[in-house]
Design a protein around this nucleic acid. Sequence first.
DNA 1: ACCTGAACACCGTTCAAGT
DNA 2: ACCTGAACACCGTTCAAGT
Lengths: 199, 199
Amino acid sequence: MRVVTPEANRPRLSRDLIVAAARSVADSTGLDSLTLREVARELGTGQASLYRHIADRRELLGLLADDLALGFPLADPALPPRERLPALWQSLHGYLSRHRWAARVIVDGEHTSRNAVPFVDSLLDCSAAVGMGPALAMRTYQAVYNLLLGYLLNEHPMGHDREGGQRPLPGWHVAGGQDAFCWAMRCLLDGVLEGRGDL
Amino acid sequence: MRVVTPEANRPRLSRDLIVAAARSVADSTGLDSLTLREVARELGTGQASLYRHIADRRELLGLLADDLALGFPLADPALPPRERLPALWQSLHGYLSRHRWAARVIVDGEHTSRNAVPFVDSLLDCSAAVGMGPALAMRTYQAVYNLLLGYLLNEHPMGHDREGGQRPLPGWHVAGGQDAFCWAMRCLLDGVLEGRGDL
DNA sequence: ACCTGAACACCGTTCAAGT
DNA sequence: ACCTGAACACCGTTCAAGT
């Protein structure tokens, strides 16, 4: 939908407005269609004007990742300690899978956004509550994070399909979505906790 | 002696030649630089000529993924059964991390290549050898595969870096590469095997 | 019949010219 | 001083014209 405002009181261009427009474009037509021309059109301005507020498309995607990280969940203290960690990861999975561009934008970015710090802190607290040391907690965080990204990317595949709609391989259908990730995530956490903690 | 090809010594264009050239371009300058123009230049032909053998760039990436899958490892029967599964995954990780474009080309593709069938069969054999049923083996395969993709994508990040070379976040450095993946993979497999096998 | 230069419709980015 | 239309250098893809 087009943010159409009378030219007189159209708000001044800003990074926030650009990011919001980019988000709207990505939500509705996907990350590949997120072009600076489209963002400019959504804002009713010229494409060159965007460069007054952002360095380039790379930075815009970074800002999008930052914006996304603002909504990362926190642990629920009402839950028993053992359940907090898996529940938090499940919550993050639910949040990220609501935006098909989320995993892509995260994977394309080199670093974790600073806005993710509260989430990670919350995660480390949960890890400490079940007896993990800081190093083990970080390693586990990285492991589940990578697992999550893998599942998200396979949930929203976008790529070179083979000819026709042929099924991948006979008998290869596996349950996807929330359930599959949660099962794998719990197995991974179990494996970490049952392990002799060699770290 | 008579030269069979009436043309110059340049061999006829074919899908295989195109894929080989694409692979060489991706290996040396990365997946983003893998343009049809560059592949054509590498082959000394016009870009339009490629379309005689491939449908479009999407298909070329698919062929690249197929070519990659041809080199997937198989289980080592000399190993004790318990070790075959982790060793096979470690071997796949080593193979894929040798090409920085590998994870990207796999993630962009919608389906697993048919050329990966021997690898997956080998994997399922290993799973059966440690007492996993077919459904559990498939679920586990999917889980470790997604974990692997996550690690590979973070090993070869290419994206919107934040301003300057600032470290991600203080104290956030975690060991990457082979070790980190292997640790996580073994934890995941342990978690699956120690689990009460609710599948 | 087979191939391909040149064109087309995009893209990110820049800059001289507008206000 | 601020903004932006138009241009530039790319990209994937197509097609009429070459051989």
